[in-house]
Computed example of a mutant assay.
Amino acid sequence: MTRRRPPRSSSADDLLATLGRLTAQAREGAELQRARVDLAVALQRDMLPATLPALPGLQTGARYMPARHGLDIGGDWYDGFRMPDGSLGFSIGDVQGHDVEAAAFMGQIRIGLRAVATASTDPGEVLSRANDLLVSVARELFATCTFLRFDPSAWVLESARAGHVPSVWATADGGCGAVQDEGGLPLGIQPGEGYPVTRRRLTQPGSFVLLTDGLIEGPTVPIEVGLARVTRLVGAGTLAGAGADELAGEVMKAAEFTDHTDDAAVLVLRHGGPPADGTG
């Protein structure tokens, strides 16, 4: 005797139809989010410099990595370029927010910093003018940033920072530490903000490393702990004689210890000591 399956109730049919509709909407939403992430990644990578400037006795290297989960593509950047007086300008920063808009805003800041640096080579003034420019466009976004100038004639680094995380230094004799310079507010918050400049003369071979907070901070990792870890990595790599590109790769691995919930960038300047004759 053949048993017949009892007819489905209309409520069951309605439930299945609702589940099908919700599944389709979820799939569409996931595909839209994936498209937004892919667009943000493309914007991010296209806006980062293809090459970085270098000079005899100065190597440069950098890395960028999106967030591990692919949903927090943001506005981390690094940049390097020649300035009108023959010095080199470097910047690294992090735009508030994680979206296509943040990635696009990052590109505007990079262009703005380069434009301002054609009129002034002082890092503090570069940040101050860029800040006023960003405030004037009223985008309701802000960015932290460190701007660094390398003077090859005096073998000097000049730096200023706008609410950004500290940089890290190391010397070939094993010394290392984090740079706790005074800074100003992030860019884009308050007009007329000033940014103190710190001057360092490079007297021996070593490394100077700029980074973003995705490398040193996470849900369970305080910024002090992450910064100490990166400082040890930079110190060990410099002592071992790692080049700029190799050292950038090693430092980027520190993001694994923060659970990589944010995108991250690192910029490494690997320098020799000043020329024997005192000239750049």
Rank of each mutant, 00 (worst) to 15 (best):
Q96R: 13
R110G: 14
F105E: 11
V116S: 11
D85C: 09
A117C: 07
I111T: 01
G70L: 09
Q96K: 11
F81H: 10
L113H: 06
G112A: 15
I92S: 00
A104R: 12
S120F: 03
E101L: 10
G74H: 09
G70Y: 02
V95N: 02
A119S: 15
M106F: 06
A102W: 00
H98E: 14
D76Y: 03
G107T: 10
F90K: 07
E101N: 12
V95I: 09
D72I: 13
M83F: 01
G74Y: 03
R114C: 12
L71Y: 11
G112D: 08
V100L: 12
M83Y: 02
A104S: 12
I109M: 14
W77A: 01
A117P: 08
G93C: 04
R82D: 14
M106E: 05
M83K: 00
M106Y: 07
A115Y: 11
I92H: 00
F90N: 10
G93L: 05
G89M: 06
A115N: 14
D79V: 01
Y78R: 11
D122H: 13
G124H: 11
I92P: 00
V116P: 10
A115E: 15
V95P: 01
D94Q: 09
D99P: 03
D72V: 14
G75M: 02
Y78L: 09
T118P: 04
R110E: 07
D79K: 01
S91K: 02
T118C: 08
G124E: 08
G70C: 11
D85K: 07
I111R: 00
D85Y: 06
V116Q: 11
G124I: 11
S91P: 01
S120Q: 02
V95G: 02
Q108K: 10
Q108W: 06
Y78F: 14
M106Q: 04
G107F: 03
M83L: 14
T121C: 13
L88E: 02
I109D: 02
A115Q: 15
G97K: 02
G112S: 15
D79Q: 01
V116M: 11
M83H: 00
D79L: 03
Q108E: 13
A102R: 04
H98P: 13
D79W: 02
D85Q: 10
L113F: 04
G74P: 12
E101Q: 14
G80K: 05
D99W: 01
A103H: 01
L113Y: 08
I92L: 05
M106S: 09
G89R: 01
F90Q: 10
Q108G: 12
G112I: 01
D94Y: 08
G75R: 00
M106H: 05
M83I: 08
G124L: 07
D99A: 13
A102H: 06
G97R: 04
W77D: 00
S87N: 12
D85L: 07
D79G: 05
D122L: 09
D76L: 05
G80W: 07
P123S: 13
G124A: 13
G80L: 12
V116F: 07
I109G: 03
Q96P: 01
A117M: 08
D72W: 10
A119G: 15
M106A: 10
T118F: 06
